[in-house]
Design a protein around this nucleic acid. Structure first.
Length: 576
DNA sequence: ATGGAAGGCGCG
DNA sequence: AAAGCGCGCCTTCCAT
């Protein structure tokens, strides 16, 4: 059963209609005011458990969450279209040529709108200003038409089951992302401020450096004999360093570390603290933390490979330095789970390299550290060497230690290395490559093909360099993208199981609504659940079970598991 | 004046 | 030890 959700043609109200799986109407079209929508949606959810179909979850779900309405399933036409347009699995269908683009996200809902009087979850399509509504949101007919087109593209594709799984997981991701934004990460502003005060000094007046930062800048000016130096200016800095006899090619910290000069230590300290101040300082707190929660927006499918991105506050780049401020509420704890060596394991599964898979198991068939296993098989037990070699193979390293170690890996695991080599060669030829479930690389532009034909020597060098660069991209794409699919399936399974935890029913979200375990963060191969202490055992088991379920969904029965490390901590900084 | 590139560094 | 993938965010610097 589907429930189609759209706007009326004059965009002042919503329309809802139930449809059977074959697309025939199962209810009359119901017109609903904005105020009444959450109650209507809740009633339909409880009565029919439909799959909600909308142009994009970000247009509808935040308002529903604000009214405490949570949904089990959806089909996000925008995210699905984004996949189907490029998927090699659907290349021979009419869909890619005929699809109507989904209306874009209303600009006023997006970035630069810090949490304030007008949070994005309070706004909606209903009161989007005229300027933003130039591209009309879809009405019911458009939604129905696009759903039909997508279903037919899937069924006439080369791998309907895989695409169905991918689109279902991606849509579930859209629900998770909105819920995590709504929920936020518990954030102790007082602890964060104490940290800032200890490291930087008191909060400075507008446009001033904190006193400890200014003191470091002064020390640096003295050591470099450059009284007016602005240490934030790479140009001024490199000139001052050269004058002081420090012959660095750039001002990157790792390069400066090599020099022995009294200016280096204060400079490196300045860099570290300056970043804390500008990126995660008082401004960050003011902009992104409200009522003890850090609310950042997740962008599902925001990366070409299918990984998520984030918008506002950098939820996926929270530095270790400030993780001490993320503390679970009283009566709750964080359960932090990360998939161990996810990308290498994905490579072993994709390439069906049984030797590499065996390196991830012990004699009893239990999962063990894959890098350690590979190290034991061919790197004299040196785990870090094995890790550098494996990552080099996935990223396409050619020089340095990593580049030197790859050939040894190729002798040990020819199938796995062939798999990424083939992806790289295809990319160099300008071809498209795909993940296991069928997300494909965007096509190369016409200019790329033109540049490959160029004749003059310098142009040809550039063309070859561009081809190698694309080869590294496609080599990594198949692994990173399939890892993202695994993670998305893991998330979806996790969410489904958390919602089913008793007491409560799926339609009300059970505990998911009434203070139960909540997903509060997701970082590519890691999730954070904010969990009532009495449910730690159950939720930990669910994290493991969901991993196995995701593996089965993606790859079927394979002699390789995707183990997750689970740590139960009060404070995010203590994980692992 | 302002938008975008580049340098730098945080995360996976 | 510092090459090879994917991002977001902040500041400076340069072109339009």
């Amino acid at each position: 059963m589907y429930a189609l959700l759209a706007l009326t043609s004059h965009e002042s109200a919503a329309v809802v209609q139930l449809r059977n799986d074959d697309g025939t109407p199962a209810s009359p079209v119901q017109t609903v005011s904005r105020a009444a929508l959450p109650a209507v949606v809740r009633a339909l959810e409880e009565a029919h458990h439909p799959r909600w179909v909308w142009d994009r979850a970000t247009h509808w779900y935040p308002d529903l969450l604000a009214a405490n309405v949570r949904l089990e399933r959806c089909h996000d036409l925008s995210l699905c279209q984004n996949i189907l347009l490029y998927s090699a699995f659907a290349a021979d269908t009419d869909y890619a040529r005929q699809a109507t683009p989904v209306p874009p996200e209303a600009e006023n809902l997006r970035q630069g709108t810090p949490l304030g009087t007008n949070t994005s979850s309070q706004d909606s399509l209903f009161d989007a200003p005229v300027a933003a509504a130039k591209d009309k949101a879809w009405d019911l007919a458009a939604v129905a038409k696009e759903l039909g087109a997508q279903k037919s593209a899937i069924s006439s594709s080369t791998h309907p089951a895989r695409l169905t799984l991918l689109l279902s997981a991606e849509s579930a991701g859209a629900l998770v992302a909105a819920e995590m934004h709504h929920e936020g990460i518990p954030w102790r502003e007082d602890l964060h401020r104490r940290l800032l005060n200890d490291l930087l000094g008191p909060e400075p007046a507008l446009h001033n450096r904190p006193e400890k930062l200014e003191a470091l800048a002064d020390l640096l000016r003295t050591e470099l004999n450059a009284p007016t130096l602005n240490p934030d200016s790479p140009q001024e800095l490199i000139r001052a360093l050269h004058r002081a006899g420090i012959d660095a090619k750039s001002t990157r910290s790792w390069e400066l570390q090599e020099f022995n000069h009294p200016a280096i230590a204060p400079l490196l300290t300045y860099r570290k603290l300056s970043r804390l101040f500008t990126t995660n300082g008082w401004n960050w707190l003011h902009q992104w933390v409200r009522e003890g929660r850090f609310h950042s927006e997740y962008v599902v499918g925001g990366v070409v490979s299918g990984r998520w991105a984030s918008r506002g506050g950098g939820a996926m780049q929270i530095p270790a330095q400030i993780r001490g401020a993320a503390v679970a509420d009283p009566g709750y704890t964080f359960i932090v789970a990360d998939a161990a060596q996810l990308e290498p394991r994905v490579l072993a599964a994709l390439s069906q390299d049984s030797a590499m898979a065996a390196a991830g198991r012990d004699a009893a068939g239990q999962s063990k550290d894959l890098y350690a296993g590979i190290a034991a098989q061919g790197f004299g037990g040196d785990r870090s060497m094995a890790k550098i070699a494996l990552l080099g193979a996935i990223y396409g390293a050619t020089t340095g230690e990593s580049g030197r170690l790859v050939p040894q890996l190729a002798r040990m695991y020819p199938r796995a290395l062939d798999y990424v080599e083939n992806a790289a060669r295809a990319g160099e030829r300008g071809e498209r490559v795909s993940t296991h479930l069928g997300r494909s690389t965007p096509p190369t532009g016409t200019d790329w093909h033109a540049s490959q034909q160029s004749s003059s020597a310098p142009e040809q060098r550039r063309a070859e360099s561009a081809a190698r660069s694309r080869g590294r991209f496609t080599r990594n794409f198949v692994v990173q993208g399939t890892a993202a699919e695994w993670a998305c399936c893991w998330l979806a399974e996790l969410r489904r199981r958390l919602r089913a935890l008793p007491p409560g029913t799926p339609s009300t979200g059970g505990l998911a609504v009434a203070g139960g375990p909540q997903l509060v963060a997701f970082l590519h191969d890691e999730v954070v659940v904010h969990c009532p202490v009495e449910l730690v055992e159950e939720v930990s088991a669910i994290l493991h079970d969901s991993s196995q379920a995701a593996t089965d969904l993606l790859f079927g029965p394979i002699p390789l598991a995707f183990p997750v490390n689970v740590s139960v901590v009060q404070c995010y900084a203590d994980a692992k």
